[in-house]
Simulated assay, not measured.
Amino acid sequence: MGQFKALLIKEYKEAFRDKRALMVALMMAFMAPIMIMVMSKVVIEKAVDKPPVYIKFTGAEYAPKLMAHLKKENLLDFADIPEKDKAIWDERNIVINIPESYSQDMADGKTIKVHLQADFNDKAVSPPVRRINNAIRDFSLSIGYKRLLLRGVDIRLLNPVKLVEQDTSMPDATFIMISMMMGLYMIMAAFMSGLSVAIDSSAGERERNVLEMLLCQPVSTLKIVLAKLCGASTIAVIGVALVLVLSSISVGFVDLTKIGATFSLGFTKGLTLFLLLLPICFFASACQLFLAFQAKSFKEAQSTVSMVIAIPAFVPFVLMMMDDRPQWLDWVPIAGQSLIMEDVFKGVEVNWLAILATSGVTIAITAGLVAILTQKLKSEKVVMALS
């Protein structure tokens, strides 16, 4: 026990020695809450608010009622644009052509073709175009309903069957976007925070000849591996804890009432997430140590281990795209935690059996990696980075 304690203290001194490198390692924990807050505000503003859209109209004088309807929807004439926004909307170049026969065709009950010209491949143009389509469709429907009423036709005949939706989700489930981002950033924090420590304590120590000297001591190889694992995992745990605390604070600055949603990350929910992510921190560090020791140099280790970060970023999006998820995904590391976090954010009752199951599988895989790495460090090829 005394040997392991000495090794652990040595790893902690190495990890906390370079304050600048430590800050870079924990940068994800500090940046994630800010990104969550900013992105949430932007998405809510786009979803709820209706910022002005400036359109170049031709033939606007032929359709005064249509123009009045568009103005109510904050779809304005290009002539009303402020000088500071003129360059932006001139580049987007959204044009609506109203035919000269608009009034006569409207009186005759003919179909009127209003032409909308824009670069539909431009992402900045897509939201304004969508609003224009909705506004003109609503205007067209209102005229159609009025014509039917004038002819004595009950417009309710157009909708013989009406589907009434009753949302049974918890209030927290309405804000899916924040929960997805938070879950993703928390898992990524577990992988990114301890990354530099894991590389330095493996490939870095091998290049500095510290590893060879350490293995020459009368110390168990297993204790050396466990000390390195605990050193890197501790930084990962700190990163996850920071993301949890700072995210709960940053979400408070987002006005969710605009979309009728509520979100809170209380102590119980935060503790549940922390316990759920704890095995992931050790799993991530074990994977990074394992890959770093296989590399032939420090630079190669950096390139190889950095690819591991793609796993936590890729898995949640794959799960989101799957309609029918296989049952075995509940047991797989990262996938199992992602699914449980989704339920936690929705306010669904926590299934502790599922947490124990996926945590048990994660710990078992971590233990397997530690055992394999322990055996590999007894090989001269791994220690000396020989081909």
Results as ranks from 00 to 15, higher is better:
76 L>R: 08
379 S>C: 09
322 M>H: 05
2 G>F: 09
208 R>D: 12
115 H>C: 09
52 P>T: 02
59 G>P: 06
91 E>H: 08
96 I>Q: 00
315 V>A: 02
204 G>E: 00
141 L>C: 08
1 M>E: 09
365 I>W: 02
36 I>W: 03
136 I>L: 15
108 D>A: 15
53 V>F: 01
236 A>V: 11
249 I>S: 09
64 P>L: 01
267 F>S: 10
63 A>M: 05
367 A>D: 02
88 I>F: 14
349 E>Y: 05
37 M>W: 12
105 D>Y: 11
201 S>P: 06
195 L>S: 07
197 V>R: 04
285 S>N: 05
101 S>P: 03
319 L>E: 03
214 L>R: 05
365 I>H: 02
192 M>N: 14
224 I>H: 02
307 M>F: 14
71 K>H: 13
120 F>E: 10
165 E>S: 10
345 F>Q: 00
336 G>E: 00
221 T>E: 11
16 F>C: 03
247 S>K: 03
216 C>I: 09
277 L>Y: 07
259 I>D: 05
178 I>H: 07
304 T>G: 03
121 N>M: 12
227 A>W: 01
7 L>S: 00
76 L>M: 11
344 V>Q: 00
338 S>D: 10
227 A>Y: 03
158 L>E: 08
364 A>G: 10
305 V>I: 06
287 C>K: 05
138 D>W: 08
140 S>V: 07
80 D>K: 09
25 A>P: 05
197 V>A: 11
352 W>E: 04
155 I>R: 13
155 I>V: 15
140 S>I: 06
166 Q>E: 08
157 L>V: 12
188 M>D: 02
148 L>G: 04
101 S>L: 03
176 I>L: 07
28 M>T: 15
86 K>N: 07
313 A>G: 11
169 S>K: 09
119 D>P: 10
287 C>L: 15
369 L>K: 00
368 G>Y: 04
376 K>M: 12
104 Q>N: 10
336 G>Y: 00
171 P>I: 02
280 I>W: 01
241 A>S: 13
182 M>S: 07
318 V>G: 13
333 P>C: 05
162 K>C: 05
132 I>Q: 00
192 M>V: 15
324 D>H: 13
210 V>P: 04
323 D>I: 08
148 L>M: 14
359 S>A: 12
280 I>S: 00
85 D>W: 07
39 M>Q: 10
107 A>S: 13
253 F>M: 08
373 L>Y: 02
244 L>V: 07
276 L>F: 05
139 F>P: 05
128 P>F: 00
317 F>A: 13
195 L>Y: 12
181 M>Q: 08
15 A>H: 02
148 L>E: 10
114 V>D: 01
336 G>P: 03
33 P>E: 01
167 D>K: 05
291 L>D: 02
177 M>Y: 15
84 K>W: 08
318 V>K: 04
259 I>V: 13
8 L>R: 06
176 I>F: 10
252 G>W: 10
95 V>N: 13
341 M>W: 06
345 F>R: 01
297 S>V: 06
342 E>Y: 09
324 D>I: 08
166 Q>Y: 13
175 F>V: 07
162 K>N: 11
254 V>G: 03
256 L>G: 02
224 I>V: 15
374 T>G: 05
200 D>G: 09
251 V>Y: 08
372 I>W: 07
235 I>Q: 00
